[in-house]
Simulated assay, not measured.
Amino acid sequence: MPLVSVPDRQRHKVFQLPVDLCADYPTWLGDRMSQGQGAHVITINAEMAMQAEQDPELGRAIREADLVIPDGAGVVWYLRLRGRKVRRSPGIELAADLICQAAGLGWQVFFFGGAPGVAAAAAQVWQQQYPTLKVAGVQHGFLSDDERSQLLRDLETKQPQLILVGLGVPRQEFWIREHRHLSPQSIWMGIGGSFDVWSGQKQRAPRLLQQLNLEWTWRLIQEPWRWRRMLALPRFAWRAVTDWS
């Protein structure tokens, strides 16, 4: 079969971190899979970009990723200031598109992370929506030593095409970077708290806030403890308008 024709991917920089712009991320990733290549997908926002400046290991993980998508409004704003045509691409939506693609192509999907029962509930929701979806496995993120060993064996044995990891930033990025060799032809993607949303444990921001790029305010309302982390946003904004190197 001929390879699928995909739009070009353009790689830009936010500070010293890569951000990839592409009209169709799922198709781009599907093309890599058709060529026997896997991918580590990272979704970046302003908070994560500032965190990477303080954490060299996180910065290295982002730079080594195969696809870095502009998840946050701050990253989109930064690139638009520099004349780049870009739209926000929330990670939760890309992950949903990949699950839909997996159901259509017969890919196996592995759900890993979250509190006990949450990933399983999320997987069940998706199987109800797509009865053809093949779930290779489900595992929560609070592992005993035996559960951790079994998880790694399962990934190596089953080689699922799509592995969704919900451990939060930066833990999920480090975990994928460390274990990606177990299934090198898979798409590995850190998805933060998406399992919580899919399982109904939390609600995503109303559509209006999403359209206004104010989804972060909804997360702050639901998780007030995040306020300290949100202090990175004004620092990012200052850097965006002053750092043109």
Rank of each mutant, 00 (worst) to 15 (best):
S144H: 00
V138H: 02
L151Q: 01
V118P: 15
V169A: 15
S144E: 03
L164Y: 08
E173L: 14
L151Y: 00
V165M: 10
L162H: 05
H181I: 07
A136F: 12
V135G: 08
V118H: 10
E156Q: 15
T132G: 02
A122D: 07
L162I: 06
G114V: 01
F110D: 08
Q129I: 09
T157G: 02
H179C: 03
Q127H: 07
D146G: 05
S149T: 12
T132Y: 01
A136Y: 12
A121H: 08
E156A: 15
K134E: 13
R153C: 09
R180H: 11
Y130H: 13
L133N: 05
V109T: 06
D145V: 10
Y130P: 05
I176E: 08
L133M: 01
S144C: 02
S144R: 00
R180E: 14
Q108G: 14
V169L: 14
D146R: 09
Q127C: 13
G168F: 11
V125P: 09
A119I: 12
Q172D: 03
V109N: 00
V138Q: 02
V135A: 13
D146S: 09
A103C: 04
H179F: 10
Q127Y: 06
L105P: 00
Q161A: 11
K134G: 01
E147L: 02
Q159A: 00
R180F: 14
R148C: 07
Q129P: 02
G137A: 11
W126E: 13
V135Y: 07
V138R: 02
F111A: 12
L133V: 04
E178T: 06
I176P: 06
K134N: 09
G137Y: 14
P131L: 06
S144P: 00
H181P: 09
G141Y: 01
Q129L: 15
Q124R: 14
G117C: 03
V125L: 06
H181V: 12
Q139P: 00
Q129W: 04
F174V: 01
Q161R: 08
Q172E: 11
L164V: 09
P170T: 05
V135M: 10
D146K: 12
G166Y: 06
G114C: 05
A121S: 13
S144T: 09
L155Q: 06
Q159D: 01
G113R: 08
H179V: 04
V165G: 07
T157N: 13
H179M: 01
I163S: 03
A103G: 02
R153Q: 15
F111I: 13
L151M: 04
V125N: 10
A103N: 08
R148F: 03
H179R: 07
F142V: 05
V118Y: 12
Q139K: 04
D146I: 01
Q128H: 14
I176S: 09
R180K: 14
